[in-house]
Design a protein around this nucleic acid. Structure first.
Lengths: 214, 214
DNA sequence: AGGTATATAGTCATCTTCGACTAGTTTATA
DNA sequence: TATAAACTAGTCGAAGATGACTATATACCT
């Protein structure tokens, strides 16, 4: 049941996955993640990487194996994964695959306050979104095809990209429909909606809730 | 083009949306958000709320209007939105609706390291995920129907819940398919995949990447 | 009358995260 | 050959987010 991970940043999972393969230094992790496109599915910043690495070391999931100096560049520390680290990696990975977790997206936040704009404007903005999503999904799809055949990679290594594309296409279809429904008054009377905005109009409230928090 | 928001937590958007309606104190914001189910689409913690409110005040997007004391309870500060706040709210909302943004989900992170488990285990975990998603989407759907008719709310006020449900159902369908494809060897040879795990096997690497970072 | 569970209304210290910055090295180029 | 650009490899301070904690009031039960 996902009891408090000591190092919870998904980047830590990536670090352990890489060190599971072989020992390496942080900069090489970045290079490898980029080569493999993993930075598309796991948020990667240098500053976060170094603090995640420290945290993993502090928790005994990885250890510094040796430090090498190359010319007058900063010393690079090569890390390796520990037994505890391997276990933690596998446990975490299993959990991520098995248990759906609730995510809060920016778009959902926007939709929550849709009545804050008059219907005509909402429609225009969503139509613009549709155009952008069309472009984006088109690019994703062709990139996916290119990569797959150029490098002759089994789909196994690109499955997270297919997932991302699928989500975007689902969103695209949904927004297209939403636009039509709004225009057709399917979400509620357009004049009522408009009236929320007439002359300093208050946005109306509406009830219905349960659930706890904090 | 989304230039650095001074207060970027989506909870700030919610606060401004509520104060757009009428002045109120933080605790009332929590109450209202829960009644309206907005805490399902915007992550809401007391501790975050108070720091977001301070930040909004610091930036001149809201102002403290008066403080009232009720018995020996802590003083409650009633806030109202400023002109700058109204503008910021609308600008932000438009941006959220118009521009798709990349989100990093936990599941995508998990999928990225799918080769880290042998195929049989991957399938078992994903099947468990399917079961959980079935349950979850079932509950979401019936809750949505109940709320809509019980309170006689126009769909306009629940559109973010429909969005969430749609995403979950899309995921469900995709994972079902994925399971079948893995079993059929559609992601690549199962014996190759298995061999990554035989006797301290290395996970193989694979190239192909562009894009910049940090 | 006493106890407890729940709602009200927050504060605080800690941990994380990230943007901005530093600085040497190699490659391209005019 | 000077010099700019891009790559390599990080550090650091500040802001942000959150879990844990405090404390009163009131409703509920026995």
């Amino acid at each position: 049941m996902a009891s408090k991970r000591k190092v919870a940043n998904p980047l830590a999972l990536a670090v352990m996955a890489l060190l599971y393969e072989r020992p390496m230094h942080p900069y090489e992790m970045v290079t490898l993640m980029r080569e493999r496109g993993k930075h598309e599915s796991v948020r990667l910043r240098y500053s976060s990487l170094y603090s995640v690495v420290s945290a993993l070391e502090r928790e005994g999931l990885i250890v510094a194996r040796e430090t090498v100096r190359d010319g007058r560049r900063p010393v690079r520390t090569i890390y390796e994964i520990t037994g505890a680290g391997r276990e933690e990696f596998l446990t975490w990975l299993r959990e991520l695959l098995r248990e759906p977790v609730k995510e809060y997206t920016q778009f959902a936040a926007g939709l929550s306050f849709l009545p804050g704009l008059p219907p005509e404007e909402a429609v225009a903005l969503l139509e613009e979104r549709v155009r952008r999503l069309e472009e984006e999904t088109g690019e994703m799809r062709s990139r996916l095809d290119t990569v797959a055949e150029q490098f002759n990679l089994p789909r196994l290594f690109l499955v997270e990209s297919e997932h991302e594309l699928m989500l975007r296409e689902a969103e695209l279809g949904w927004v297209r429909l939403l636009v039509k429904e709004i225009a057709a008054g399917g979400l509620g009377s357009l004049s009522e909606w408009r009236s929320l905005h007439s002359e300093r109009g208050q946005m109306r409230s509406a009830g219905g809730g349960e659930e706890k928090d904090v």
